[in-house]
Simulated assay, not measured.
Amino acid sequence: MNYPYEVRSSEFEGKRVLVTGGTAGVGLATVKRFALAGANVLTTARDSTDQLPEGVIFVKSDLATAEGTNLIAKEVLSQLGGIDIIAHVVGGSSSPAGGFSKLSDEDWQKSLNLNLFPAVRLNRLLVPEMLKQGHGSIVHVSSIQRILPLYESTIPYAAAKAALTNYSKSLSKEISPKGIRVNVVSPGWIGTDASNVWLEEIANTNKITVEEAKQTVMDALGGIPIGRPAKQEEVAELIAFLSSAKAGSINGAEYVIDGGTVPTV
């Protein structure tokens, strides 16, 4: 399995894990991380991939719909027999550029449907199972755009991620006394395959090199002090740590992984 870091194969042995959006980018890296560590993993996305590790259960669904989340909750309970860890990775932006005036109600609703409601709905369906057993861990993947929005193109995405982070804090206060921890991972720019394609498009459009395109993006973000986007496996490692017993006292927290992009404490 292609994963750049050494993983202890018994770390999550026997743990039942759901990873949403697990067929590409951070989601796929997270699936690999848990599978390497001995977990029983179920993942879901709109499209499959041949890169999933052996033994990982894939269920095709559209989590932007209530029907999709209902299906996944049923499959988790029937195929895994319960749930110990939920990593909500699914998300993204498809809003048109041009600022607030270009955004329709549909644009706003699509972003909320993809970036907020999948976590809300799946938690509502699966957290009761965690409460019955008295333990569990939930990690929501938000974004630094919740505090550093890009008004030119991703206003609804940033607002939805802000809502997800706020919801996460509320949820942690309610269920952590009953044994379930809730935390947030907020990445900045991540070097995924999709972002590499995007850089090539920028380079071709502006007749510059890919490296120059990368620098243009970093400049637009206000700079990344470490000089590069995060690796998807680095984000997966943080998700795994927060899900592990080693993070047993971490609850209701947000961990930013952005190479220093956000310029304030």
Results as ranks from 00 to 15, higher is better:
residue 164 L to S: 00
residue 212 E to Q: 09
residue 179 G to S: 07
residue 169 K to H: 07
residue 189 W to I: 08
residue 177 P to Q: 13
residue 197 V to E: 15
residue 178 K to S: 12
residue 166 N to P: 13
residue 183 N to Y: 05
residue 216 T to F: 03
residue 204 N to C: 06
residue 171 L to S: 00
residue 202 I to E: 07
residue 200 E to C: 05
residue 188 G to F: 01
residue 205 T to P: 02
residue 209 T to L: 01
residue 197 V to N: 02
residue 177 P to F: 15
residue 168 S to A: 08
residue 180 I to V: 13
residue 180 I to T: 10
residue 216 T to G: 12
residue 183 N to Q: 11
residue 213 A to L: 13
residue 195 S to C: 03
residue 179 G to D: 08
residue 181 R to G: 01
residue 185 V to Q: 01
residue 170 S to W: 06
residue 193 D to R: 08
residue 205 T to G: 05
residue 170 S to G: 13
residue 211 E to N: 11
residue 202 I to S: 06
residue 211 E to C: 01
residue 170 S to N: 12
residue 211 E to W: 01
residue 185 V to R: 00
residue 177 P to G: 10
residue 168 S to D: 01
residue 171 L to R: 00
residue 195 S to Q: 14
residue 216 T to M: 15
residue 185 V to T: 03
residue 166 N to G: 12
residue 202 I to G: 11
residue 180 I to G: 01
residue 181 R to K: 13
residue 167 Y to I: 03
residue 198 W to L: 08
residue 189 W to M: 14
residue 190 I to W: 07
residue 205 T to R: 09
residue 172 S to N: 07
residue 198 W to E: 07
residue 182 V to G: 11
residue 198 W to N: 10
residue 216 T to E: 10
residue 187 P to H: 03
residue 193 D to I: 10
residue 178 K to T: 02
residue 203 A to F: 10
residue 167 Y to Q: 01
residue 207 K to A: 10
residue 213 A to P: 14
residue 212 E to A: 08
residue 171 L to H: 02
residue 183 N to P: 09
residue 190 I to T: 11
residue 202 I to F: 09
residue 164 L to I: 02
residue 197 V to F: 10
residue 182 V to N: 09
residue 168 S to C: 05
residue 190 I to Y: 10
residue 213 A to Y: 03
